[in-house]
C-alpha cells in the first residue's frame, strides 16, 4: 500500500464500518435463514432472491421509524447508549488482522486493547438500561453487569494462558506463529498446554456470554424481561443495539480465530489469507447461530455458577498448567 498513512487509515476505517454494517445486516439474514432451516421452514423468501434484500428492507424500516425517547428517561444517556455500544466494536476490528497485511493498525499491544474496548459493551447496555427508566431494563442492566463481570474473569485467564504460550500481544505476530498446517494452530499446540482445546471451549463459552447470546441472553431474555435493556428503544436506537450485537459476535469470533484457529493462515497453503480468515470467522459465527436456535436459555444463577464454580477453576488450572509446562520444557 502506497497511500499516505492518514488516507490509508481513513480508507480502512470506512472499510471496517462498511464491513460491520454489511455483517450486521447479512448476519441477521443468516440468522433468520439458519433459524428457518433449524426449524424446518424456509425463513425469509419474499424480498429479493431467497430474501437477500430483506436486511435492506429492515434497515429502511428501522431508519424511517421515529426515535422515541420515553418521558422520564434520561434523554442524553438514552441517546448515548447506542453510540457507546457500537463504537468499541468498530475499534476492535481496526486491529484485527484480516490478512497478512490487511490490518488497519498493527500495534504491539493489540490483545490488551481488544479487551479494554471489549468491556465497554457492558457499560453501554447498563447506560441504556438505566436511562430507560424501565424496571425490566434495569433488571436486565443489573444482570448484564454481573454476567459480564463473571465471564470477563475466565476469559482473561484464558487470554493470559494464550499470552504465556505465544509470548506476544501483537495479534499479527500471534497469527504468524501459527504458520503451516492446522496442527500448528494454537488450538492443537498440545506440547505447550495439553488442555488447549479446553481453553478454546472456555473462551467460546465466555464469548457467547460476553456478547449476550443465547443460551446466555440474560440481557434480552424476551420471555422474562420483554426485551431487557432495549425495551424502550424504538427504530434505529434498537437497530444500533442489534448491529452492535452482531458486530460483537464478529469481533469475538475474530479474536477466537486469531488466538486459536491460526487467523489468516491457510491450512493447505493455497488461496489468500483473507479468504481463510473469513472462512474460519464465519464458521464460528455460524456455530453461534446454531447454538442460539438449539438450546433454551440458562437460568441466571446457573449462568453465574457456571462461571464462578466451573469455568474459573478450570481456566486457572490451565493457566497454572501452561506456566508449569513453560518452565519445564
Amino acid at each position: 500500500m502506497s497511500l499516505p498513512e492518514p488516507f490509508r487509515l481513513l480508507a480502512y476505517l470506512l472499510g471496517i464500518m462498511a464491513f460491520v454494517g454489511l455483517n450486521a445486516a447479512y448476519l441477521v439474514w443468516v440468522e433468520r435463514k439458519g433459524a428457518g432451516r433449524f426449524q424446518r421452514r424456509p425463513g425469509p423468501t419474499e424480498v429479493g432472491y431467497a430474501g437477500l434484500l430483506q436486511p435492506i428492507a429492515d434497515a429502511v424500516k428501522l431508519l424511517t421509524k421515529q426515535v422515541i425517547v420515553p418521558p422520564g428517561a434520561d434523554a442524553t444517556l438514552f441517546r448515548l447508549a447506542p453510540v457507546v455500544v457500537l463504537a468499541p466494536a468498530l475499534m476492535c476490528l481496526a486491529i484485527i488482522p484480516f490478512g497478512p497485511h490487511l490490518v488497519a493498525r498493527e500495534i504491539n499491544v493489540g490483545l490488551l486493547l481488544l479487551f479494554a474496548f471489549g468491556s465497554i459493551n457492558v457499560m453501554a447496555i447498563m447506560i441504556g438500561g438505566w436511562a430507560s427508566r424501565n424496571k425490566y431494563a434495569i433488571i436486565s442492566a443489573a444482570r448484564v453487569v454481573s454476567q459480564d463481570v463473571a465471564y470477563e474473569i475466565p476469559m482473561l485467564l484464558v487470554v493470559i494462558t494464550m499470552l504465556m504460550v505465544t509470548g506476544t500481544m501483537d495479534l499479527n505476530q500471534i497469527v504468524r506463529q501459527q504458520a503451516g498446517a492446522f496442527w500448528n494452530w494454537n488450538l492443537f499446540k498440545l506440547a505447550a498446554n495439553p488442555l488447549m482445546p479446553v481453553t478454546f471451549v472456555i473462551f467460546y463459552i465466555c464469548m457467547l456470554a460476553e456478547t449476550n447470546r443465547a443460551p446466555f441472553d440474560m440481557a434480552e431474555a424476551e420471555s422474562e424481561l420483554v426485551a431487557g435493556a432495549f425495551t424502550e428503544y424504538a427504530g434505529m436506537g434498537f437497530g444500533v443495539f442489534f448491529m452492535a450485537e452482531y458486530a460483537n459476535i464478529v469481533v469475538g469470533c475474530a479474536v477466537a480465530t486469531v488466538l486459536f484457529l491460526g487467523g489468516w493462515q491457510s491450512p493447505i497453503g493455497i488461496l489468500p489469507g483473507a479468504f481463510w480468515f473469513l472462512l474460519k470467522l464465519y464458521a464460528l459465527v455460524f456455530s453461534v447461530v446454531w447454538v442460539r436456535w438449539t438450546f433454551p436459555r440458562t437460568q441466571f444463577y446457573g449462568l453465574l455458577n457456571l462461571s464462578w464454580k466451573i469455568l474459573i477453576p478450570i481456566a486457572l488450572f490451565t493457566l497454572i498448567l501452561s506456566s508449569v509446562m513453560l518452565k519445564l520444557f
Binding site: A35, Q39, R40, A214, E222, S223, W293, T294, P296, R297
Partner: peptide, 16 residues
C-alpha cells in the same frame, strides 16, 4: 413452554 425458557425451535416442531 420451551419458548418461555428461551428455546424457540421446539415450538415449530410441535406445531408441525
Amino acid at each position: 413452554f420451551l419458548l418461555d425458557l428461551g428455546g424457540f425451535t421446539p415450538l415449530l416442531y410441535a406445531f408441525d
